[in-house]
Design a protein around this nucleic acid. Structure first.
Lengths: 144, 144
DNA sequence: TATTGTTATACTCTATAACTATA
DNA sequence: TATAGTTATAGAGTATAACAATA
C-alpha cells in the first residue's frame, strides 16, 4: 500500500482520458448508431465527405490519418446503406471518387448539427477560456 | 460542403478525447504489456490491490466502477501469472480476498513508479495551472 | 430470493499481412 | 516495382445474459 502520497488512478492522465473519451464517445454514438446504424469510422468518413466534398478513399485516409483498411470497410458499409456511391476515376482505375447520395447528404447534415450541439453541450460546463485550453491540451497530447 | 464555419473533426471534443486517450493509452501500455504481459484491466486491478491493499473482486468493482465480469477475467489472468492469490472468505464463501504475491507486489511497485513518471512526462508540456485544469475538466467529462 | 463470481456470446475497434488490379 | 483498395485474421475492449455456488 502506498499511502505516503496521493497518486491514484483518478489522477493518472491516461486513465482520466480513457474515462472521458469513453463517456463522450458513448454519448455521441447514440446519434450515428441508433439513428443511422453507423460505426465510428463510418461517421468519420461520412463527415469528411460531407464537410470537404467528394474525394477518394486515399484522400480521406490522408486527411483523417486513418488506415486504408478501416476506410475500405467504412466505405463498403456506407455504400450498402446507400449513403454514398463509388465512381471509378477514369485516368487511374484503381481509385474511386466517393460521392454522398441524397440520403448520405441528409444524414451528414443531421449529424453535423448533432455534433455541433453535442460539442456545445459538453463544453457548456466550462468557461470559454477553459474549454479552449482543454482542446489545446488534448490536441497537444494527441500529437505526441 | 460546409465552408461557412470552421467546425471540423479536429475541433470535435469526442474526437479529440479519443485521439488523446488512444495516444496516452498506447504509450503506457508499453509498460504493463511488454514488461508484464498484462491487459489494461489487469493493470487496473493490480493497481487497486497494490495501492489500497487486499480486497475482494466486489470491492475492486465498487472502487473502480468496473463490471464484475471484467474483474473476474482480470483476476483469473493475474492469478495465472502468479501476481495474486485468492483466499476464500470463511464467513461468506462466495467471496475471495485477493492478495498480491511477492511478484505481484514487485510488478506493482515498478508500474506505480512508471505511471507516476509517465504522467509527469505527459504533463511536462503544460503549466501547473493548465495541467490541473485539464484534469479537472476530464474528471467532469467522465462524470457526465 | 438475492448476491458473488464465472462463463458464453457478441459487438466494436485496432493492427498487420497478404492479396487484386491497376499503374 | 509501386500504389489503391480489399480481404483475412487476430488481439483488445466492451456489454449483457445466463449460470453455479452460496447466503
Amino acid at each position: 500500500m502506498h499511502n505516503d502520497d496521493s497518486f491514484d488512478l483518478q489522477g493518472f492522465l491516461p486513465y482520466l482520458l480513457a474515462q472521458a473519451a469513453e463517456t463522450a464517445s458513448a454519448g455521441f454514438q447514440r446519434h450515428y448508431k441508433d439513428r443511422y446504424g453507423m460505426l465510428r469510422t463510418e461517421w468519420r468518413v461520412l463527415f469528411h465527405l460531407g464537410r470537404y466534398g467528394p474525394m477518394t478513399a486515399k484522400d480521406i485516409g490522408a486527411r483523417a490519418r486513418v488506415h486504408k483498411t478501416k476506410i475500405s470497410r467504412a466505405v463498403a458499409a456506407l455504400e450498402t446503406k446507400r449513403f454514398l456511391t463509388r465512381n471509378v476515376v477514369t485516368r487511374d482505375r484503381r481509385q474511386a471518387k466517393l460521392d454522398l447520395t441524397k440520403n448520405g447528404q441528409a444524414a451528414f447534415d443531421d449529424l453535423y448539427k448533432a455534433a455541433q450541439a453535442f460539442d456545445a453541450q459538453l463544453m457548456a460546463g466550462f468557461s470559454r477560456q477553459e474549454g479552449a485550453a482543454l482542446k489545446r491540451c488534448l490536441a497537444a497530447l494527441a500529437a505526441q
